[in-house]
C-alpha cells in the first residue's frame, strides 16, 4: 500500500538468506529465509526464545551469523558493514545505552557517529525530542529516565540519521499508551515516506493493527510469512499464532493457588 508513494523496486529492503547461528550446543537461528519488501511495515512475532532477537542482531550487524547472508537493499551487510550500516537504523533490546549522557547528548552522539554535521544533528535532535515528548528531560541523564523514556530516546537515536530501513526489537515494551500511539504515528508516516520498518513484538494485536506484513518465528525458523491477511486467514493473528506455535497448556489444577482455600 505505500507503493503509490515509492516507486516499486524489485530489490527487497531486507533479505535474509539461510541465516544460521548457534550458541554452544543451542541452535538459536536455524536457517531463516525472509524477504522484507521495500516500503513495508513488517512484524516479526514469536514466542520467548524463538530467535527473534538473534535474527534482528544478525540483520543489523550486531552479531555475526555462522552462515547465511543479509542483504539490505541488495547489498551484503556482512561483506561491507560500514557502508551498509549508514542506511540502517537499529533499536536493540536488552542492551544499555551510554546512559551517563543526557538525552540530547545521546541523540547528538548517534547523529555524529553517523557522520551528520552539527547543524543537521541539532535540528533533528530538537525535532525528535519534541516528537517523543522528551523536551523537558533533554538535559537529564539518560540513567535517570524511566524505562519508557529510555526506549523513546533509543528510538530517536535510531531515527536521527534518516535510515532507509529501521529494525526495532520490542519498541513498545514499557512505553505508555500515549507515547506508543505517537511512536506508531511516527513510524507510519516514515513508512508512507518510503521507509521500511521491521518490528519484533509479543503483542499480536498491535502487529495486526500496525503491520502490513508479518512473519511467525519459532525454534529458530520461519513458520509463516507474508501479508498479514494472508498469514492470519479467517481468524485473528493470535489464534493463527497459537495454532502455528502450539504449546498451550490447559489451566487445570493449581488448587493451592486459590487463596480462599486455606
Amino acid at each position: 500500500m505505500p507503493d503509490d508513494v515509492t516507486p516499486a523496486t524489485p530489490t527487497p529492503a531486507l533479505a535474509l538468506r539461510g541465516l544460521w547461528r548457534r550458541f554452544g550446543p543451542k541452535i538459536a537461528v536455524a536457517g531463516i529465509d525472509l524477504t522484507v519488501p521495500a516500503g513495508s511495515f513488517y512484524g516479526l512475532v514469536g514466542p520467548n526464545g524463538a530467535g527473534k532477537t538473534t535474527t534482528i542482531s544478525m540483520s543489523t550487524g550486531l552479531l555475526q551469523p555462522d552462515a547465511g547472508q543479509v542483504l539490505v537493499h541488495g547489498r551484503d551487510l556482512w561483506a561491507d558493514p560500514v557502508a551498509v550500516k549508514r542506511t540502517l537504523g537499529v533499536l536493540p533490546d536488552g542492551v544499555k545505552l551510554f546512559d551517563r549522557l543526557t538525552g540530547e547528548q545521546l541523540i547528538t552522539y548517534a547523529g555524529l557517529l553517523h557522520g551528520l554535521d552539527r547543524d543537521t544533528v541539532a535540528g533533528r535532535s530538537r525535532e525528535l525530542l519534541t516528537a517523543f515528548d522528551l523536551v523537558d528531560d533533554a538535559r537529564t541523564l539518560v540513567v535517570d529516565y524511566s524505562a519508557g523514556m529510555t526506549k523513546k530516546v533509543a528510538l530517536a537515536c535510531a531515527l536521527v540519521h534518516a535510515p532507509n530501513l529501521l529494525v526495532l526489537d520490542e519498541p513498545f515494551e514499557a512505553v505508555d499508551p500515549v507515547s506508543a500511539a505517537n511512536i506508531r504515528d511516527i513510524l507510519a508516516s516514515y513508512v508512507r515516506g518510503g521507509g521500511t520498518v521491521v518490528v519484533s513484538s509479543h503483542v499480536m494485536d498491535l502487529v495486526q493493527r500496525m503491520c502490513d506484513h508479518v512473519a511467525v518465528v519459532a525454534r529458530g525458523q520461519v513458520l509463516a510469512a507474508g501479508p498479514v491477511e494472508q498469514v492470519r486467514g479467517d481468524g485473528s493473528l493470535e489464534d493463527r499464532f497459537v495454532e502455528l506455535v502450539g504449546g498451550r497448556v490447559a489451566a487445570e489444577g493449581f488448587a493451592w493457588l486459590r487463596t480462599s482455600s486455606d
Partner: peptide, 23 residues
C-alpha cells in the same frame, strides 16, 4: 543514584569537532 540536576548544553559534544572522532 539521586537524579542530577539538568545539564547545560551539549558539554564536550558542543566544543569538539562535529565528526565521528570528535564525538
Amino acid at each position: 543514584q539521586e537524579a542530577a540536576g539538568p545539564r547545560k548544553g551539549l558539554g564536550w559534544f558542543g566544543r569538539l569537532p562535529a565528526t565521528p572522532l570528535g564525538a
